[in-house]
Design a binder for these strands. Structure first.
Lengths: 208, 208
DNA sequence: TACTGTATTAACAATACTGTTAAACATAAA
DNA sequence: TTTATGTTTAACAGTATTGTTAATACAGTA
């Protein structure tokens, strides 16, 4: 044999990633993964033993990616407004790489309590750290009188809401690959990116 | 026989609604529906012929509910800020009745293009009407100098983002029924409700 | 009472899906 | 060339799941 040397495993992982993200755990059949990967379906069990094993590999990697990135994007020291803008945009641009990611992760967390706990334990430390820093940064700005009092948790949640929902809507509005060639697709994204930054920043400022 | 006279059909629909909303189409098994409804599983095929038929009934009703309500909540004539506040709150309160609704509908739309088209055709007229009215209301306020120029679509999208995402997060944070007895659950909702109104309104206002 | 249409049940059929196994095959090292 | 090791295949087993059917019950009605 061509001694695919890890090739088969990679093919399976790639096909599995694509299908799981698209159809979720229950919607994805192992034989479909095999067919997409171009390998005999027994290979899935040879390399990963069970569907659940294979799924976990994908899920944990994806969840870490999603959450890790969120933390990263807002983890720097703030010269407040510019960094906030950069953080939102960086986060937005990351999501535009893999539009299905947030909905996939959220769905599977909701449908399986174990996964929820797994995720929570993973991000708790980083999450608390970032909240602490952000709280401090906000407090400083409030002192200066540039923004109104805001909880760091609320701010993060607002950003996540706007950014994530943009990509959920994107999938509804432009579901097929052809749709995504359209000009409207680009326009929609640009508009939302700008809107989200403006709303968050304008929303923080104190009115006259 | 007790001749349940339409009772069985109702029992099936109720059980199906609960399970489909919780587990989605693929996660729900017809025998589970039958068991939950307390009827023989052949009844499902007797009344609805196929799983897909039964699902469509539920889905279409739910989608109409979700979208219809959104339209309704923002469909009145605006004395701007108060009505905007009321609209957001009404929408939020509606979602709090059935927290799983938006994610359920979004998921099934994304996973099935036919459903997407069905939905689009259903809401297009109402959607266009509400956009037109809102555009007019916004233009008037902009003239008065009370708010900054904003597209109606962006505004609606912002509201939907914040409100819907609150309930997606809610399901992640408080997944079980016991969780929802907690005090934190109520607090979270109150906080988000207030936050969303404030962010939208403050975000519209012009800053010095 | 017998007839008709609807409702219900249990048993069955057909298929889909996950997981297992034994044997074949390829390759590198001895 | 032989052997050891890891990889691949086809065939199969077991179960889950959807869907079908024939027999039966019952209510209303002619």
């Amino acid at each position: 044999m061509e001694q695919k040397a890890g090739n088969t495993e990679r093919l399976i992982l790639e096909a599995a990633e694509k299908l799981f993200m698209e159809k979720g755990y229950n919607g994805t059949k192992t034989m479909d993964i095999a067919k997409n990967a171009g390998v005999n379906h027994a290979m899935i069990h040879y390399y990963f033993r069970t569907k659940e094993n294979l799924f976990s590999r994908i899920f944990e990697q994806k969840a870490a990616q999603l959450l890790g990135f969120f933390v990263e994007a807002f983890n720097e020291d703030y010269p407040f407004f510019e960094k906030l803008k950069t953080g939102i945009e960086t986060h937005f641009d990351f999501l535009s790489q893999t539009p299905e990611l947030p909905l996939f992760v959220l769905n599977e967390i909701i449908k399986d309590k174990n996964r929820r706990n797994y995720i929570f334990n993973k991000i708790r430390p980083a999450g608390e750290e970032i909240l602490k820093r952000m709280t401090k940064a906000i407090a400083e700005e409030v002192c200066k009188g540039t923004i109104r009092p805001t909880k760091a948790g609320d701010l993060l949640m607002n950003i996540a809401s706007l950014n994530v929902f943009a990509f959920v809507a994107l999938q509804v509005l432009f579901s097929s690959d052809e749709d995504r060639q359209q000009e409207g697709y680009i326009k929609f994204l640009e508009e939302r990116r700008k809107n989200n930054v403006e709303l968050i920043i304008n929303g923080l400022k104190i009115k006259n």
